[in-house]
Design a protein around this nucleic acid. Structure first.
Length: 271
DNA sequence: CCCGATTCCTGTAGGC
DNA sequence: TGCCTACAGGAATCGG
C-alpha cells in the first residue's frame, strides 16, 4: 500500500534511470485507471526528455519538455525500471520506453492509480492545489495541526489522514504515529492539546523518516523501483497486530474502525 | 464548512 | 478441497 515512504522509495529507485532520458515510445494497454489515460499523454510525452522527477504528497511529478506527467500509485500501483521488460504481464498497464534501453513500467491490479499529462504548473493542478504541507518539510509542525483542529469533532486519526491538513499520512502510518506519541486515535481532533500536537507532529515525521530509511513497508506486494521489498513492516508496533502484546505495556492491541478504515491502538498507552 | 458514507477495483483471507 | 463472501484501502465525490 503505497503511502509517502513507499512513493519516495519508488522515486529514489527510478530517478537515476529517468533523468536525462528521452521517451522513445509510450505503450498504453489499459486506459481505465482512476481517470482515463488520454491519447494526448502518449502523443505529447513521446520524444520528450525527462528533466526531473519530484514527489508532492503521494504524487510523482515527471517533468519533460515543458509538460508534466502526474503519477499516483493508488493502493496497488508500482513503477519499476526494467532492463529488459519482457512480455507485459497482467496489470502492466503502461510502459515508457526510454532511449537508454530501459523501460519504465506501471503495474496496478486495482487500477486506483493515475497517469495524467498536464502542460500547466502541476502545483496548480486541481488535484494538487489544495494539498496541505509536506510532513517532512519545514512548514509542518504541531502548531499548524493545532490551529487547523480547533472545533473539529472528527477523530484525530481521520484528521491527520486528511490531505488538506498534512499530506502523505496513510492508514498504516497514522496508527503508528498515534501509538508513538500516546494519543488515542478516537479522540476528537479539537480535543487534543497544543502540546500533544507537538508530539504528534514529531511522531509523524519520525515514523515516515524511519520507513523511508527501511525502503518502505511491504505488507503484501509493495516493491520499490528496483523490485526490492521494503523492510519497515517488521518495525510496525500496532498496525495489523490486533490481539498482539503492546510493546509498551504488554496488553492486547485493539482494532476498531474510524472513517471506514481499520485502526489499531493500545487503549492503555493511548489516551 | 464539516463530516461521514460511498465509490472505484481485484487479490486474498477466512468461513463453511 | 473448493467455493463464496467479505475485506483491504487512497482519495474523490456525494449527501446530509
Amino acid at each position: 500500500m503505497p503511502e509517502l515512504p513507499e512513493v519516495e522509495t519508488t522515486r529514489r529507485g527510478i530517478e537515476p534511470w529517468l533523468l536525462g532520458a528521452r521517451v522513445d515510445a509510450v505503450a498504453v494497454r489499459e486506459r481505465r485507471l482512476r481517470w482515463p489515460v488520454t491519447p494526448r499523454l502518449a502523443r505529447e510525452l513521446t520524444g520528450r526528455s525527462v528533466e526531473s522527477l519530484e514527489r508532492r504528497a503521494k504524487y510523482l511529478l515527471m517533468a519533460a519538455g515543458g509538460g508534466t506527467l502526474i503519477m499516483h500509485l493508488g493502493m496497488s500501483g508500482s513503477l519499476r525500471v526494467h532492463k529488459t521488460p519482457g512480455q507485459p504481464g497482467p496489470h502492466d498497464h503502461v510502459d515508457l520506453v526510454l532511449n537508454n534501453g530501459r523501460t519504465l513500467r506501471f503495474n496496478d491490479p486495482r487500477r486506483f492509480g493515475a497517469m495524467l499529462w498536464t502542460r500547466r504548473d502541476p502545483m496548480r493542478h486541481p488535484l494538487l492545489r489544495h494539498l496541505g504541507p509536506e510532513p517532512l518539510g519545514a512548514e509542518f509542525d504541531g502548531d499548524c495541526l493545532w490551529r487547523l483542529s480547533r472545533s473539529r469533532r472528527a477523530a484525530v486519526k481521520t484528521f491527520i489522514m486528511d490531505g488538506r491538513v498534512v499530506v502523505g499520512v496513510g492508514n498504516i502510518y497514522a496508527s503508528e504515529a498515534l501509538f508513538r506519541c500516546g494519543v488515542d486515535p478516537r479522540r476528537a481532533a479539537g480535543r487534543v492539546s497544543r502540546q500533544r500536537y507537538g508530539l504528534l507532529a514529531d511522531s509523524i515525521r519520525e515514523v515516515l523518516a524511519a520507513a523511508i530509511k527501511r525502503g518502505g513497508t511491504t505488507l503484501r506486494d509493495f516493491t520499490g523501483g528496483d523490485g526490492q521489498p521494503g523492510y519497515f513492516a517488521q518495525e510496525l508496533n500496532v498496525y495489523g497486530r490486533e490481539g498482539d502484546a503492546c510493546p509498551g505495556c504488554g496488553g492486547p492491541i485493539r482494532q476498531t474502525a474510524l472513517g471506514q478504515r481499520s485502526t489499531f491502538f493500545c487503549p492503555r498507552c493511548q489516551r
